[in-house]
């Protein structure tokens, strides 16, 4: 194992994160605060409670998930797409590293960044609403798994993308709608019965439900299924990455 290479990639990516601190950190915090103002204060004042939790607090897990998923995906996809775009990928291909090391470096950095952002949003939320965390260990586990699995997904997108439009395509067309429709701002029990069934095909539902359970002890779907869902998703991403590097798809002819 070339730990030096993992360290080099990780530190290099983190350095980029800290160099562009404004866009990488402050913008998610501002947008989250805006969500609180709009959904928590403006709309939330007309909704008293959802499943026994004040609406302001109810949306916190969903908001964190929203940011963590989009940030993990975009950071990881950009991290690996940029060397491809600018041509410096030759270095990764000619260095004594294997795909596991490259993946750990990029995905590790992207997951770390999104974790930092997630924690900052959690802290920011603490200023707006009263928060209690019923199952802290499960909360951390769900958060970590989400950071890692969506960073893996982003990594795949970054390798697949042939231009900047494609890089934005999946996050914009797939992830954002799934997250919004995945119960970030509502409980799926609030939906008409037919839509409750449809929504069960949205994988994000399981993540948000599980994460919310860790906070408030109530869930839309059983926690065990949430855990299985995220594990399967992570496994699928890992399998895809293994296949990409094995065949050299989009990377090495």
């Amino acid at each position: 194992m070339n730990f030096g290479a993992i360290r080099a990639i990780f530190l290099y990516e983190m350095a980029r994160f800290f160099r562009t601190l404004t866009q990488s950190l402050i913008s998610p915090v501002i947008s989250t605060s805006l969500y609180f103002v709009v959904f928590g204060a403006a709309i939330g004042s007309r909704i008293d409670e959802v499943e026994g939790v004040s609406y302001g607090a109810f949306i916190v897990p969903g908001l964190i998930m929203l940011s963590v998923m989009t940030q993990a995906t975009s950071n990881a996809s950009f991290g690996i797409y940029f060397p491809k775009f600018i041509g410096t990928i030759y270095e990764h291909l000619s260095a004594p590293v294997n795909f596991i090391e490259i993946t750990i470096g990029y995905v590790g950095a992207a997951a770390t960044k999104s974790l930092i952002i997630g924690v900052i949003i959690l802290v920011t939320a603490g200023f707006f609403v009263d928060l209690q965390i019923a199952h802290p260990v499960a909360m951390v586990a769900f958060l970590l798994l989400t950071c890692i699995s969506f960073a893996l997904l982003g990594f795949i997108i970054g390798i697949w993308a042939g231009n900047f439009e494609q890089l934005q395509l999946i996050p914009l067309l797939v992830i954002t709608p799934l997250v919004f429709l995945g119960g970030s701002f509502y409980s799926i029990t609030m939906l008409p019965p037919a839509w409750q069934v449809v929504t069960l095909f949205n994988p994000v539902v399981y993540l948000i439900s599980g994460f919310r359970w860790a906070f408030f002890g109530t869930a839309d779907v059983p926690v065990a299924i949430s855990l299985i869902a995220i594990t399967v998703f992570t496994g699928l991403c890992l399998a895809a990455i293994w296949w990409i590097f094995k065949t050299g798809w989009r990377l090495r002819q």
């Binding site: 290479a5 290099y12 600018i86 030759y90």
Partner: peptide, 28 residues
């Protein structure tokens, strides 16, 4: 390997980018 194209990240510095290359090869 020195590639044909001038493949460098514009916002990096010579010191940082060589440090990265060395790290990538697993050297302390």
């Amino acid at each position: 390997l020195v590639p044909q194209e001038l493949n460098l990240e514009p916002f990096e510095t010579p010191m940082r980018t060589t440090r990265f290359s060395r790290g990538l090869f697993g050297k302390p």
